[in-house]
Amino acid sequence: MDQPRVDPDQELVKRTQSGDAGAFDELVIKYTPRLYGLVYNMTSNHEDTNDLLQDIFAKAYRAIRGFRGKSSFYTWIHSIAVNMTLNFLKKRGRRFQLSLDDVDASIQNDKEFLESTATSSPVREADLSELQRRLNEAMMKLSDEHRAVVTMFHIQGMPHAEISKILRVSEGTVRSRLFYANRQLQNYLDEFRKNPVS
């Protein structure tokens, strides 16, 4: 049985609810990098991510008085972020053309990046930058909901249970979406391996 855990942000949340705007600033500073990764990997666009992040924190600030602590602040702010991003993606529809930044040039010199790719035979064979670009394209081919799950699980490293709380779906649904998304990504990347120039 799950033990009720103390929310590490409880104090900051209470101070914000009492009208301390500085406490909310601390929450913004704390969660901006993490939420940026989440929103960016769902939208694949820096400008959209910036606008959405501003809206997300503005909405959270307006709504925080109604936050009763039934979930952690972490889950709550991630729910707002995912829902607002999904709504945005629905509105944006298919007019978006993939302008996604390929992997930063600097990251190919990153030690952790090199270590993580050194043992991988398919990765070794393919040009990393090109492979990453293909991966981004493959991500954009997923549905918004599947991309959200992939982003939270693979990129953000969240457990299934946390994702299910954020999306308000069962863990089984999360696992099934992940399975389906992985198959789609594999198919797309395998196709690229067999026919790299396409």
């Binding site: 913004v28 790719t117 990765v123 981004n136 990347l189």
Partner: peptide, 30 residues
């Protein structure tokens, strides 16, 4: 093994953590 398995996909996706906004973005965000 030539095909991308789940681990391979996961490893590649983790690389996306390195995609960051322009320098100074987080400082100016607030």
């Amino acid at each position: 093994m030539d095909e991308f398995d789940d681990n391979e996909i996961a490893r590649l996706l983790r690389l996306k953590r390195y995609e960051q906004p322009p320098p100074g973005y987080f400082e100016n965000f607030l």
